[in-house]
Every structure is written in C-alpha cells, then in structure tokens.
Write a protein that binds this DNA or RNA. Structure first.
Length: 151
DNA sequence: GTTGAGCGTT
C-alpha cells in the first residue's frame, strides 16, 4: 500500500524508513558519488502496481531509454518490487539517478543504483588480488607430498 | 489476500 510508505516516512518510527536505507546505501556504496560505468540502472522500492510503462514514463525525461522493465514474478504474476532501466548513454543514466533516486513513484520511494552485470563479464574479472608469500612456502607444502593415503 | 530486501523469464 502506498499509505504504508507515507506513514513510515512521516512518522519516523523505530523501523528504518526507505529514506534512511537509501542514505546508508549511498554512503556504503558511494552510489551518488561514483561515476557510472554502465547505462543500466537497478530500481528498487517500486510499488507492486508499478509496471513497465510506469517505469518508462517516470524515467523517460532524463534521456533515451533503451529498456524499462519491472521484474514480474512468474508464479504470482505480480511485480517483485524492483526493475531495471537502461539508457543509451551513461550520462543519461547519471541524470536519471540524480533526478529519480529517493523520489516517489506510485506512492513509494524508489532507489536508483547502478545495476550489477547480469552475466559475468568475461573480459573484466572483478578483482583478483594475487598475494605472493614472501616467506617460504615449503612449510606445509612438503608435508603430505609423499604421503600416500592408499587405503 | 498483503506485509518490502533485493539484481532480471528472454
């Protein structure tokens, strides 16, 4: 319900409001301070009545949309409460994030964050920290080398 | 039927 969102925000009850969650998420992930590397955005906090068209109309003013999709649970046939929006350029996605993050859509505060790559990037492994042991690796390495547990 | 963190049916 839309009223639930309003009540949480206006009352400031014990339960963390979506706005607070947004702030924490921003601080933790620097979502509003880091330049986007992809024109794809992850939109969460959507109302369950929000559909692809609503999402499209809400984000269309910030740039040319390539895709606007609300994820629908195939079993229940209703929205999962989040979706994805893809622009033609990352600049447009930036504007959309600045303009739509923590804003209302169908009575709910939505959160705009960079989307994670759905398929693992073949060319860009996340981060591989190769740590070379400065000390000898003989210890523990020769231990079971010739030990045969042939049972 | 309705309870709110999250990263998608192709």
């Amino acid at each position: 319900m839309a009223f639930a969102a309003f009540r949480r925000i206006l009352s400031g009850s014990s339960a963390p409001s979506p706005l607070l969650r947004s702030s924490f998420a921003s601080i933790r992930s620097n979502s509003t301070l880091v330049t986007l590397t992809s024109p794809k955005l992850f939109i969460s906090g959507l109302s369950r009545v929000t559909t692809d068209e609503n999402l499209y109309n809400a984000f269309a003013s910030f740039g040319q949309l390539r895709e606007a999709k609300v994820i629908i649970d195939r079993a229940s046939g209703r929205s999962k409460g989040f979706g994805f929006v893809t622009y033609e350029t990352v600049e447009e996605a930036e504007k959309a994030r600045e303009g739509m993050n923590a804003k209302f859509l169908d009575g709910w505060v939505i959160f705009v964050d960079p989307a994670r790559p759905r398929e693992a990037q073949p060319r860009q492994p996340p981060r591989q920290d190769f740590q070379f042991n400065s000390q000898s690796t003989d210890i523990g390495f020769t231990t079971n080398k010739t030990v045969g547990w042939c049972g």
